[in-house]
Structures are given as structure tokens and as C-alpha cells.
């Protein structure tokens, strides 16, 4: 089975988000005159850039922010988009790579800790759908939690994809792709991918051992107001 070269290795994928929708996670954190604006959302990089300013204007208007924010927001989005586009066109040897995604975030009063595996090679994956399921399954009612989870997943996937691209570039420069890609190259690229042979080999079962279940079990905590304030202080 190992002798088979996976299709993705033979046909290297050009850089993109390793999900069904090629949406870029955008994070805004802008402070002007003591007023801080934080936000996170996704952006379709194939949308025309003129939309960015329109979006910024509308956001400012909706949130009743000072006009100074418009340019800041537009610039921030634009620069993040540019960064994303700079990777486009490069090869992304995703290969056989399944990465652990770890969630540890607080949205309003909800605290979420979770970890699971994500296949970078699965271009049909849908973080938003996953987040929705997560919320219904865990009985989370806060409507902001789902998008936050999806965003967190996207952000991590984006980071890993970028690391992939850069490591491959470095490798090409140093070795001129002497031996071609192999699994080791993936694990060298910074984020520790899981040992696929160990997990999916003939010896092991894909069913986790019972004692590991707790490790991979999602934890959802609803915090009280005081706790939220406390954690806010810590973060600050």
C-alpha cells in the first residue's frame, strides 16, 4: 500500500485553503485614540478588492465607529489578503498529512477546549459545518460560538498551509528537490503532523483506546460574569 503514490503527491496542489470554500481568515485588531476594534471573519480572496473599502465603510457605519477606522480596517484587510495572495500559485505539497487542530477559546461566556484531527488533503472539509455540528451536539446556544470555532480552525489551517509552502520552497532551494517529497518533509515543516503509519497501519485500530477518549473529548464551560472578567484581566 505504501508503494502507491498518493494522487496528491503526483499532482501537487497549488496553495489555497485546504477546505471546500477558499475563504481566508481575517483578523482585525485596530486601536485608534483609545478605542479598540477587534473582529474576525472570513473573506473570499476572489472577490474584487473594491469590496474591501465598501465593507470597511459599512462596518464603521454600522458600529458607529469614528471615520478614522475606515482606512485602518481597509488597510488591514487588504494587507492580509495580499499576504494570502502572495502564496497563491506556489506548490503546496499537502501529501498525506493529517494535523491535530486544537481549540482553546472563549467566546463571551463560553469556554471551549477541544482537539481533533484534520486532513489537509481533504479539500471537501468544511469548518463551518463542523462548528455548526459541534454547537448543536454540545447544546451551545450562543450564536457567536459557531463562527468563532470555524474561524479558529481556519486560522490554524491557514498557518499550516503557509508553513507547508515556505518549507517546500526552502527545500527546493537547498536540495533542488533531489529526492522528491516524502513524509519526513511534512513533519519537518513545523507543525507536527500525526504519524500516519502508526495510526493507520495494519497493526493499529482506528478506534482510540478508552483512556484516550477523555483527551479528545470536547470541553465546554459556561463561565459566570466574574470569571469572564477575571479571564479578561489575565488576557489583558
Amino acid at each position: 500500500m505504501k508503494s502507491q503514490i498518493p494522487a496528491s503527491l503526483r499532482n501537487p496542489v497549488k496553495f489555497r485553503m485546504p477546505t471546500a470554500d477558499n475563504l481566508v481568515p481575517i483578523r482585525l485588531d485596530i486601536e485608534i485614540d483609545g478605542q479598540r476594534f477587534k473582529d474576525a471573519f472570513t473573506w473570499n480572496p476572489s472577490d474584487p478588492d473594491s469590496e474591501v473599502v465598501v465593507f470597511a465603510k459599512r462596518t464603521v457605519k454600522d458600529l458607529k465607529l469614528p471615520l478614522a477606522f475606515v482606512t485602518q480596517i481597509a488597510q488591514s484587510i487588504q494587507s492580509q489578503l495580499t499576504e494570502f495572495r502572495s502564496y497563491e500559485g506556489q506548490d503546496m505539497y499537502v501529501g498525506e498529512k493529517i494535523v491535530p487542530i486544537k481549540l482553546d477559546l472563549r467566546v463571551n461566556h463560553t469556554l471551549i477546549r477541544d482537539q481533533f484531527l484534520w486532513d489537509l488533503n481533504n479539500m471537501e472539509s468544511d469548518p463551518e459545518e463542523f462548528a455548526r455540528t459541534f454547537c448543536t451536539d454540545m447544546g451551545i446556544e450562543d450564536p457567536e460560538v459557531g463562527p468563532a470555532i470555524a474561524f479558529a480552525i481556519r486560522e490554524q489551517l491557514y498557518k499550516i498551509a503557509v508553513q507547508n509552502v515556505t518549507s517546500i520552497k526552502e527545500m527546493k532551494i537547498s536540495k533542488k528537490a533531489r529526492r522528491g517529497p516524502e513524509y519526513a518533509s511534512a513533519s519537518k515543516s513545523g507543525v507536527a503532523a500525526v504519524d500516519l503509519v502508526k495510526l493507520f497501519g495494519h497493526r493499529s485500530s482506528v478506534i482510540r483506546k478508552r483512556k484516550e477518549w477523555d483527551v479528545y473529548e470536547p470541553i465546554v464551560d459556561i463561565l459566570s460574569n466574574e470569571e469572564v472578567e477575571e479571564s479578561a484581566v489575565i488576557i489583558a
Binding site: 493529517i98 484534520w118 486532513d119 481533504n122 463542523f130 455540528t133 482506528v206 479528545y216
Partner: peptide
Amino acid sequence: LTFTEVRKSLVGDVSLLR
């Protein structure tokens, strides 16, 4: 049975498990 409950016990890509 919820998906979230199942996936903690299975090794693999969550999208595929889904």
C-alpha cells in the same frame, strides 16, 4: 448519538468522519 460524541473515540480526519 451525536457526531461530537463519536469523533473523540476515532482517529481520523473529522471531515471524513462527519
